[in-house]
Write a protein that binds this DNA or RNA. Structure first.
Length: 228
DNA sequence: GCCCAGGTGGGTA
DNA sequence: TACCCACATGGG
C-alpha cells in the first residue's frame, strides 16, 4: 500500500514549506512565463522576462506589435527563441481576438471551456494550459509535469507511467478542489526535483525505506525527503 | 564536453 | 496511438 496523495503532499510541505507560486508580477506575466519555461530552466526565463519588461512589451498589445524576429531577440536567453516567439505572438493574438486583452473577462469563463480553448492555441499544450488556468486565472486544475509522473510512479502510487489526464484525474479525485492546494503541491514537486533530487544515489533494491524518484531522461535515482 | 531544465508540434509507421 | 525528432540557451 503506497502513501496517499494527501500524505505525500503533507510530507513535502513539512520538508520545504510554502512555495507561494507563481513568481510573476500579474497574470499576463505569469502566462508569458508559462510559455517561456517550456523545457527550460527558470533562471533563463527570468532573463527573457526582464528583457521584455525593459523593452516595455510585456503586455498583449506589446507582443502583438513586435516583429517576430525582434521578439525572438528579446527572449533569446530562454532558448528555443524562434518557436517561443511564434508561441507568444499566437497567445497574444488569442487574448486580443477572444477577450480584447481583458484577463478578468477571460477568468470568468468556465474552466472546461477555457481549457479546450487554450489547447487550440499554437504552443499551448496541456501543462502550459493548466499552469495558466491554475496560477493566472485561479481555476482549480492540477498541473502535471514529467517529474510528477515519474515521482508518483516511483513512489508506487501508479503502476506505470501513464498519460497526462490519468495523473490529473488521480490528483483531482484524491484532493479537494483548491487553487491554493493544487498550486502548492505542483510547486513543491518542482522544488523537490530541483533542490533535492540533485543528490545522485544508486538505486538500493535492498533498502525498503529508500523512497526514490528518477531525475531526467537518464533515470538517475535519488531520495525523496523524509523529515518525519 | 556532457547532461539537464517548471514542453510542444510535426512527421512517420 | 505511439514513438521520434527539432527546437537552443545557460548552469552544474
Amino acid at each position: 500500500m503506497s502513501e496517499s496523495i494527501l500524505d505525500i503532499y503533507k510530507r513535502l510541505y513539512r520538508a520545504y514549506g510554502p512555495q507561494c507560486w507563481w513568481p510573476a508580477d500579474g497574470p499576463f506575466e505569469m502566462m508569458v512565463g508559462a510559455i517561456l519555461t517550456q523545457n527550460t530552466a527558470w533562471r533563463n526565463v527570468e532573463k527573457a522576462i526582464e528583457n521584455l519588461k525593459v523593452a516595455g512589451v510585456l503586455c498583449p498589445e506589446g507582443l502583438r506589435d513586435l516583429l517576430e524576429p525582434d521578439l525572438a531577440r528579446l527572449i533569446y536567453p530562454s532558448g528555443y527563441y524562434n518557436v517561443k516567439a511564434k508561441k507568444l505572438k499566437a497567445f497574444a493574438r488569442y487574448v486580443g481576438d477572444t477577450y480584447q486583452d481583458d484577463l478578468d473577462v477571460m477568468a470568468s469563463v468556465p474552466l472546461s471551456v477555457l481549457r479546450d480553448e487554450l489547447l487550440t492555441v499554437y504552443g499551448i499544450g496541456e501543462e502550459t494550459a493548466d499552469d495558466i488556468l491554475l496560477y493566472a486565472l485561479s481555476k482549480p486544475v492540477f498541473v502535471v509535469d514529467a517529474f510528477t509522473k515519474r515521482l508518483f510512479y516511483r513512489l508506487g502510487v501508479t503502476n506505470k507511467i501513464g498519460k497526462y489526464r490519468e495523473y490529473q484525474g488521480l490528483f483531482e479525485r484524491s484532493l479537494s478542489p483548491s487553487v491554493a492546494l493544487f498550486g502548492e503541491y505542483h510547486a513543491l514537486i518542482v522544488h523537490h526535483t530541483k533542490h533535492v533530487c540533485r543528490k545522485i544515489q544508486p538505486l538500493c533494491g535492498s533498502c525498503s525505506l529508500l523512497r526514490i524518484c528518477p531525475l531526467g531522461r537518464r533515470n538517475v535515482m535519488c531520495e525523496t525527503p523524509d523529515f518525519e
